[in-house]
């Protein structure tokens, strides 16, 4: 990147035809957030932040979205690798299915999860009949809903990174006697590092903000399934000011975490990736 910018030829001025809409886009994204901050009753913030139900919701959101990301990494990396490196019939179809939860309205995702893992569901039904275990209304159900919606973000990001890195590194590793597993572990995965981290953060952020699938599949009860977005929705019906405060808390927390991650991981990783 640095070498490219040094040898950049004079391209002329950036055209207003691009700059003006670009500025509008930034405004469009920023304005609602600024408006939210403007409407925030700031003096209430500290007292709300330590209110037991908010602490519960925040803690629950953190635990469930982190567990969801762990689950997503465990099954998402192998899937991304398979899509990027293994030729098999129907690969395009599998890739299309991976994207489905991305375009599905989250509430529909929640209903779909119920029909699969509910106690009358395709898989949940037999499990319930045999063991009496029912997934909906549990914290585990929140993790499942989070993982369902965030897995596509992670897989797309990691697969993209793996496809972007040159396959010849894999070939070279193979000619040097490495097994495919060793190549995956020592070559492919490290090269996909930045994409992996970006996918991780995206998946986590998506899980943290998940609402529709969660409330439909897992329900809404303080301490077990009421995550921050659920709490915000409930508050919105009774006390819009409280909802705004909660939204700001969630926004600040997510931005802070993302900024921290960027500081720690992103920049070195990105440099490392573009060097070869």
């Amino acid at each position: 990147m640095s070498t490219r910018s040094r040898s950049r030829p004079a391209l002329g001025r950036a055209p207003a035809l691009l700059l003006v809409p670009a500025g509008l886009a930034v405004l469009f994204l920023l304005l609602p957030l600024v408006a939210l901050l403007e409407r925030t009753p700031w003096p209430d913030l500290p007292s709300r932040l330590v209110a037991p139900d908010i602490v519960d919701a925040l803690r629950l959101s953190f635990i469930t979205s982190t567990l969801a990301v762990v689950l997503v990494v465990l099954i998402g990396i192998p899937l991304a690798w398979t899509l990027a490196r293994v030729e098999f019939p129907g690969r395009a179809l599998v890739r299309a299915f991976v994207i489905v939860p991305l375009v599905l309205p989250p509430v529909v995702g929640g209903v779909a999860l119920l029909t699969a893992f509910g106690r009358r569901g395709l898989i949940g039904g037999p499990v319930y009949d045999a063991t009496g275990y029912s997934l909906p209304f549990t914290t585990a159900a929140v993790v499942v809903a989070h993982a369902f919606v965030s897995l596509p973000f992670f897989v797309l990001s990691v697969e993209g990174a793996m496809r972007a890195t040159n396959r010849e590194y894999d070939v070279v590793a193979a000619t040097l006697g490495a097994t495919r597993w060793t190549t995956f572990r020592r070559v492919t995965l490290p090269l996909a590092g930045p994409g992996l981290l970006a996918g991780l953060v995206l998946a986590w952020a998506r899980a943290l903000g998940e609402f529709g699938a969660t409330i439909t599949f897992a329900g809404n009860y303080p301490g077990t399934t009421r995550t921050m977005p659920n709490a915000i929705y409930v508050a919105l019906q009774a006390d819009p000011d409280a909802a705004i405060v909660l939204s700001v808390i969630l926004m600040v927390v997510s931005v802070a975490v993302l900024a921290l991650l960027r500081e720690r991981w992103f920049d070195p990783a990105v440099q490392g990736a573009t060097r070869p």
């Binding site: 909906p136 329900g219 809404n220």
Partner: peptide, 11 residues
């Protein structure tokens, strides 16, 4: 305690 507090009566 209820298993869930749904957002409205239809839910």
């Amino acid at each position: 305690k209820p298993a869930s507090e749904e957002v409205d009566v239809k839910a």
